[in-house]
């Protein structure tokens, strides 16, 4: 892993992977969306409103997966001081927040026809909203800490680890507490979902994940390029003073 501590080596790999990730991700997501809109059957109870499943569920998984990745990167930052860990966590935060928000918005749109309400304060919905707020706080904190320079990634890393407590709470909220949201349809090799929904969902999830990965790589490259440009400017300013 420390082989990629060298940003130049990481950048070479990132440059190669970004394009294919993005193209494959968009293609797969569009295919899954087309299946969801035109191919998938109507559900026995919910009818056509079930089609939003192909956006809502992958968005929820990626919103949670994003914070899990932030927590792992934070661990690598705190323990091993991996030079790219803090940058990776900062790059993940924004797309993670977008997916969490997408999950909340599509869930609300789905809740109106399925449950009869846009929003309720049950365990699942509340903990997901908390995740979105955690992302917002993380982005603000990481930006502020970054301006402090050298030790700027320590505090966001601690926050990233602490915030990970919310992830199992989101998952178990529908099992621990009575909630309006139904329990998970897919768990450990068991699916309560008909194949027509399940395979479309898997395709959408892979597609969304590839887009997520491409965005993270692009953002990491941008953060590294920014740091490089700043360092160069600083050096030039020093030279100007010396002359």
């Amino acid at each position: 892993m420390h082989g990629y501590a060298n940003p130049a080596r990481f950048l070479r790999l990132a440059r190669i992977l970004t394009g294919p990730f993005l193209i494959a991700g968009i293609a797969l997501s569009l295919a899954a969306a087309a299946w969801g809109l035109f191919g998938a059957p109507a559900e026995r109870l919910q009818g056509d409103s079930v089609r939003i499943l192909f956006i809502h569920v992958p968005a929820a998984w990626l919103g949670m997966g994003g914070w899990t990745a932030i927590a792992l990167a934070s661990m690598a930052e705190l323990v091993w001081r991996h030079p790219l860990a803090g940058i990776a966590a900062r790059a993940i935060a924004l797309p993670g927040a977008v997916f969490a928000l997408l999950c909340l918005v599509t869930g609300s749109l789905w809740g109106r026809p399925a449950w009869g309400t846009w929003w309720v304060w049950d365990g699942r919905l509340t903990s997901m909203l908390v995740l979105f707020f955690l992302y917002c706080a993380y982005i603000a904190l990481a930006d502020a800490a970054n301006r402090d320079g050298e030790n700027g990634s320590r505090l966001p890393a601690i926050f990233g680890l602490v915030g990970a407590v919310n992830i199992p709470i989101i998952h178990y909220s529908v099992l621990w507490w009575n909630s309006l949201h139904q329990p998970p349809s897919i768990s450990m090799g068991k699916s309560e979902m008909a194949p027509a929904f399940l395979y479309g969902l898997l395709a959408a999830t892979i597609g969304f994940s590839l887009i997520f990965g491409a965005v993270v790589l692009m953002r990491m490259r941008a953060i590294l390029a920014n740091a490089q440009a700043e360092a160069r400017l600083r050096r030039r300013a020093m030279e100007a003073v010396d002359v």
Binding site: P41, R44, V50, W115, P184
Partner: peptide, 25 residues
């Protein structure tokens, strides 16, 4: 408020018996 379960079954499968549906799932 309506609370639905975690099963997602296409409309065409609605007429199946519970056992058949389970088998398909």
């Amino acid at each position: 408020l309506a609370k639905h379960d975690e099963k997602y079954v296409p409309r065409e499968m609605k007429e199946m018996t519970e056992a058949q549906a389970r088998q398909t799932v």
